[in-house]
Amino acid sequence: MRYAKQLIALALMAAIATPMVAIAQEKTIEKKVDINALSKKLDELYRSESSKAVMTMQIVTPNYERTLEMEMTTKGSENTLIRILSPRKEKGISTLKRGNEMWNYLPKVKKVVRVPPSMMMSSWMGSDVTNDDLVRDSSWDEDYTVKQVPAKAGEFCFDYTPKESAAVTWSRVHTCFDAKLELPKLQEFYDEKGRKVRQMTFDRYRKVDGRVIPTRISVTPLSEDKKGNKTVMTYKAMSFDVEVPDETFSMANLRRGK
């Protein structure tokens, strides 16, 4: 019942918007879209052969607000290492993803905790970002079937539906790209019941180390129990295709904590 009103509103909006969509569609379809290329781009937006980034993660909830500063190193799509730089209390907490496995290092107790695959969709360090978002276990290009859907002028929009084999809990991810930049603008995540539960917006497109990327990602959960929550990730520095030794992603290095 709670959703009845929203449904009616949506239906009304759809009715009003139909002619506009039709016009928009005519325009956008003109330009041929390479769906696979865009999906690959989404997969490798902040990655390359290797990458190093420093970013901040601002976590806002009704009960507290805090900002983590962290460093993220990647190599290929298999290896990711994240280290928290500040605040002091959490400095050194690290996340390592290698292949299908993921671990957290807790400097306070000097121990490594394995993150089971079932936790990939759980929150990372209490943020609205999941483990999967950060270490990107699933691939937009390989784990989803993609369908183009009508969009506003200047945008391409797609519905990503996970393939059965993919370990993803979303039922659908609506993704819109900026047509000119061919970069993501918006992602809307739907749960298995078809409810929109999370929204991710991309902005502050900047040229960083030779590439234009959205340097800010804002994640807003839409479920009732997460009302007022928001996580904003901002890239402060980024370099692509730098020398990263394989040893970076070893357990020994994870345990080193810095």
Binding site: I59, N63, Y64, L106, V109, G126
Partner: peptide
């Protein structure tokens, strides 16, 4: 997770 949002580890 602790009440201040930080990671609780022990």
């Amino acid at each position: 997770q602790a009440a201040d949002g930080s990671t609780a580890a022990e």
